[in-house]
Design a protein around this nucleic acid. Sequence first.
DNA 1: CGCGTATATTTGCATGTACAAACATACTTC
DNA 2: GAAGTATGTTTGTACATGCAAATATACGCG
Lengths: 143, 143
Amino acid sequence: MGEKKDSTYCGCLYYSASALARVMTRMADESFAPTGLSSSLALLLMTVHKRPGIQPCGISEQMQLSPSTITRLVEKLEHKGLIERQSEGRTTRVYPTSVGSGLSASIEEAWKKLYAKYSGLLGEEKSRELTAAIYEASRRLEG
Amino acid sequence: MGEKKDSTYCGCLYYSASALARVMTRMADESFAPTGLSSSLALLLMTVHKRPGIQPCGISEQMQLSPSTITRLVEKLEHKGLIERQSEGRTTRVYPTSVGSGLSASIEEAWKKLYAKYSGLLGEEKSRELTAAIYEASRRLEG
DNA sequence: CGCGTATATTTGCATGTACAAACATACTTC
DNA sequence: GAAGTATGTTTGTACATGCAAATATACGCG
């Protein structure tokens, strides 16, 4: 009875949020592809580039990803020679290598292209509102 | 210079959408835990329960997940004895087993509890609006 | 000082997800 | 009815992610 394009789930925030995240991740990976990095790795590299010496727990907080995820992503970037870790005591500090820093411009550019792409599809005003609303909601939900 | 709780990324839809999806997935998994299923499996089982004989490609469309993902999830539910596949020709049809159907009530209940939880935190009106806006955006972004 | 607790990081394991390719079947057109 | 194309499904492989436990270090208090 009338279930053409609206699924049973479209009223569920879990469902729609997951769907949007998948679409956005695909779009982001496309945008970042010229840098040779996935979207997650690109964002992490930018984070380190903006705050050299940041600790994994700081990255975790900033990116809202679990510490273990950060460990894994950092390993990959280190393996690619884009960042390096310096451990001292219980803390670890992460720095970009010169190669890694050299990528920052193209990452920034890809990022802007990504913004342009989705705001072109959604409208600039709308997409800013949506982003803010989503950000606010995620903060409130995990408080 | 003033970067307390707002990250560099909070203006990026990719970032905020991913963050919200992670939070919501965690919440959903908690809600569905009493059923013994992860949120994805629970939703898939409901989908099959509501349309017995649905094909993987139909599930894929409805859940907005890739066909290969559906294959993997269906395998798991089949292995748990909650659904079964009947292949004929190139098509496959998926049916709930009686055990699987027996779970549908508690899944439905968990789903309502999930709704109650996040709408309690965000406000019912707000969360409905947000869900609709997100759903609309994801549709528009992937055409 | 030394013991208990708190914090930072990593590891083992499991999950969900997708892309590309392989495969299997159906359709179409000549 | 055979060849080429379209559709449905599965497989191989890779990635991102998290939880719980292990590890390592720091801190605080008696």
